[in-house]
Amino acid sequence: MVVVQRRELTFWERMYLPEIVRGLVITFKKMFEPRVTRQYPEQAMPTTAVTRGQPRLTVKDDGNIACVSCGLCEAACPAYAITIDGKETDRFIEREPERFDIDMLRCILCGFCEEACPKEAIFMSNELELANTTREGLVYDMEQLKRSTSTLQPRIDYVRKINDRW
């Protein structure tokens, strides 16, 4: 059993009203302190390379998607958000995705896909906003997920740096 030792209140404190006045003074003073609210849509939170936003697919400089649809992100995804179907290409890299869907309602932004990817093809971008009026609209297909390498470059550099540590 725990016996809670309560502090003996002084007479002044037991009079109650002075303490109330003290509290009122504190709140009154607070009214003149600078405000901390951020006006969100106008003042977005700045993101950094460490920000783990929604996954996006990289498009290489030659215009081809970096993904080879190996399915490792699909296998690594703990939320079963990713669905990939592959197809054959004429390029040296023989395989590319025919369908690459990420169900953003399922995605938990854990970043396992990024970690699993052997081809630097999927990265957690700094995009955080997600809204739609239908569920189907939030299943992003390949065209919605494609981003150029340059937009993802900070994250790519960061991931390379982290991976070098191991």
Binding site: S69, C70, G71, E74, A75, I84, D85, G86, K87, E88, E94, R95
Partner: peptide, 9 residues
């Protein structure tokens, strides 16, 4: 079967 599916799926 070429490039149709990953075998673990």
């Amino acid at each position: 079967f070429r490039f149709k599916a990953r075998v673990w799926n």
